[in-house]
Lab assay of single mutants.
Amino acid sequence: MLDDRARMEAAKKEKVEQILAEFQLQEEDLKKVMRRMQKEMDRGLRLETHEEASVKMLPTYVRSTPEGSEVGDFLSLDLGGTNFRVMLVKVGEGEEGQWSVKTKHQMYSIPEDAMTGTAEMLFDYISECISDFLDKHQMKHKKLPLGFTFSFPVRHEDIDKGILLNWTKGFKASGAEGNNVVGLLRDAIKRRGDFEMDVVAMVNDTVATMISCYYEDHQCEVGMIVGTGCNACYMEEMQNVELVEGDEGRMCVNTEWGAFGDSGELDEFLLEYDRLVDESSANPGQQLYEKLIGGKYMGELVRLVLLRLVDENLLFHGEASEQLRTRGAFETRFVSQVESDTGDRKQIYNILSTLGLRPSTTDCDIVRRACESVSTRAAHMCSAGLAGVINRMRESRSEDVMRITVGVDGSVYKLHPSFKERFHASVRRLTPSCEITFIESEEGSGRGAALVSAVACKKACMLGQ
C-alpha cells in the first residue's frame, strides 16, 4: 500500500517536472537572447534605426563620474514606483581627507489618484512632500541643488532636461508624456511658492545606482535594477552614441532593455503563462523582457503555473481556492519566502493557508518547484541581457580580458534567497573573457542622484555659470 502511494507521488512529481521543464533555458538559448539583445542595442544607438529599435539606448548626458572633490548639501528625489523618497545628502571631506556622503531620508507613498490623475496632481503632491521634508529638517530658507531620480523612459536633451516617452509600472498621470519632466517639477514648486529649489540633474535609477557604486569602486561602469521592473545602464564610447554629437570619451546610456521583445525577438521563448500575464497587464505587448524578470510579474506567473497544475490534477487534489483564482493573489514576496523555507515546509504551508488552501507535504514541495522554475528562468533571462552589455563593452574597448564592476539594486536581487547566485553564475558562463565584480548599492537611487548633481554643480562652477 505504502509502495503504491510512494509510486503515485513519484509519478505525480515526474509529471510536474515535465510541465515545469518549459521554463528551462539551455545555454544556447541564452546565447541567442544575448546576441539578439546586442543587435537591438546597436539599432538603438544608431541614428537611422533608433526610432524602430525596441531597446532605445537613451543617452543620459552623464559623462563624468564623481571624483571626490564636490562638497555641499544636496536634496535628492526618487520616483520610480508607488513609494517616493526625499533625501538630504551631505557631501563633504571625511576623516583623513576621505570623501564622505551622509544621508537623511523619508519615504512617502503615492496615492492612487496622483498616479493615475493628471501630471499637475502628481507633481503638486511631490512638491508637497518636499515642503514637508524641508519643514522637518528646518531647511526651507536654503535654496538647495536638487537631483531627481526618475525611473521611467526619458529622452534627455541635457542633464536637466528630459522628455517622458511613456509611463510604465502602473503610472498613468495624463499630460506628462511628451513633456519635460524637470519643467513639470519646477512648475509645481513655483505653484507652491513656499520654498526654492535648483533642479540641476535628472537621472534614471540605473544611472543613480551606477554612480553610487562608483563611489565604492571606481571600476563600476554598469548599473542595473532588478526590482519591480528590470533595466540597466553602462558607459558607452561616445563615438557609438549617434544621437549625441561628439566622439570623445564616454557617456552613460540608459538601455531601457525592459522593452526588448516588443518587436518579436522573444516570441519563441514566451510561454502561455507569459501571454496571460501580458494580456492582463496595463501595457499589453510592451516591456516583454521586463515581464519575464521583474517583481511586478513574478508572483503572478507562479500563480498561473499553480492553476495549470491544479487543472492537471497534480496539486491540491485538483481544487483551487477562490483566493488562488484571484489575479495578483500570489505576491512576489511569497516566491522569495517559499524558496527561503528551511525544509520543514512550515513557511510554505503558512503562505498557502493564507490563500485558503490546506496543502499536503507533496503540495508544498511542488509549489516550491514552481517558484524555483519561474525565478530561475528570470535570473537566466536577466543574465543574457547583462552578458550582452558586458561583452559589447569588452569588444568596443578591444580588451582581451576586461575587469568590470556592476552596481545592482532592486528588491528581487536583494531579497530573493537564490536569485543573485543563479544570476551571477549564468552571467559568468556567458562572459568567459571578463572578470566581473557585483556590488549592491546602498540607498543607491538617492545618493547617486545627489552625486550626479554634485558633478553638475562642479561643472557649472568651472564653466562660470
Rank of each mutant, 00 (worst) to 15 (best):
L2I: 09
L2Q: 15
D3N: 08
M8K: 13
E9D: 10
E9V: 09
A10Q: 15
A10I: 15
A10G: 11
A11P: 15
K13A: 15
K13Y: 10
K13F: 14
L25W: 08
L30G: 03
V33R: 01
M34C: 07
M37S: 02
Q38K: 07
D42A: 08
G44L: 00
L45I: 10
T49M: 08
S54G: 13
K56P: 09
Y61V: 03
Y61S: 02
V62D: 00
V62H: 02
R63Y: 00
S64W: 15
T65Y: 09
T65D: 14
G68R: 07
S69H: 14
D73Q: 04
L77G: 04
D78N: 13
G80M: 15
T82V: 09
N83L: 08
N83K: 06
F84L: 11
R85P: 02
V86C: 08
L88C: 03
V91A: 09
V91S: 06
E95H: 12
E96I: 10
G97V: 07
K102L: 07
T103R: 05
T103D: 03
T103W: 05
K104Q: 04
K104H: 05
M107G: 06
Y108E: 11
S109F: 06
I110L: 11
E112M: 04
E112K: 15
D113T: 15
E120S: 12
E120F: 13
M121W: 12
M121R: 12
L122P: 02
L122C: 06
Y125H: 14
Y125G: 11
S127F: 00
D132E: 03
D132C: 06
F133N: 03
F133A: 01
F133K: 01
K136C: 10
K140P: 02
K140L: 10
P145A: 10
F152Y: 14
P153C: 11
D160E: 08
K161R: 11
L164H: 12
L165P: 13
N166S: 11
F171I: 11
K172D: 03
S174D: 09
G175L: 10
A176E: 07
E177A: 09
G183A: 06
R186A: 04
G193F: 01
D194G: 10
A201W: 01
M202E: 06
V203C: 01
N204H: 07
N204F: 05
T206Y: 02
I211F: 00
S212L: 04
C213G: 03
Y215L: 02
Y215G: 00
E216R: 03
C220D: 00
V222M: 00
G223V: 01
V226K: 00
G227K: 02
G229F: 11
G229S: 11
G229M: 14
A232I: 09
M235W: 00
E237M: 11
E237L: 07
V241T: 01
E242Y: 04
G249F: 05
G249W: 03
G249E: 02
R250S: 06
C252Q: 00
V253C: 02
V253S: 00
W257C: 09
W257I: 09
W257K: 01
F260V: 05
D262Y: 15
S263V: 06
S263I: 02
S263W: 02
G264S: 13
F269V: 04
L270M: 04
L270K: 03
L271R: 02
Y273T: 14
Y273D: 08
V277G: 05
E279M: 15
S280P: 11
S280A: 13
S280M: 11
S281M: 08
Q287K: 15
Q287C: 15
Y289G: 15
K291T: 09
L292S: 14
G294F: 09
K296D: 13
K296T: 12
K296S: 10
V302Y: 07
V305Q: 01
L307D: 03
R308T: 05
L309Q: 00
D311E: 12
D311P: 15
L314F: 10
L314A: 14
L315P: 00
F316R: 03
G318L: 04
S321E: 10
T326F: 10
T326D: 10
G328R: 11
G328F: 04
E331L: 15
T332R: 12
R333M: 13
V335H: 09
S336N: 01
S340M: 05
R345V: 09
Q347C: 07
I348V: 04
Y349W: 01
T354K: 11
T354N: 13
G356E: 06
R358S: 03
S360G: 05
T362A: 02
C364P: 04
D365L: 07
I366R: 04
V367T: 09
R368Y: 04
R369V: 05
E372D: 02
S375L: 09
T376I: 03
R377P: 00
A378M: 10
A379G: 07
H380Y: 11
M381P: 00
C382G: 10
L386S: 06
L386K: 01
G388N: 09
M393H: 11
E395Y: 14
S396G: 09
D400C: 04
D400H: 01
M402S: 09
R403L: 10
V408Q: 03
V408P: 02
S411V: 08
V412S: 09
V412M: 05
V412I: 04
Y413Q: 07
P417S: 12
S418C: 11
F419E: 01
E421M: 13
R422L: 15
T431N: 06
C434R: 05
T437P: 01
F438G: 01
E440N: 12
S441F: 08
G444R: 10
S445L: 12
A449Y: 06
A449K: 07
S453R: 12
S453Y: 10
A454W: 12
A456G: 11
A456P: 05
K458A: 15
K458F: 15
K459G: 08
C461V: 15
G464A: 11
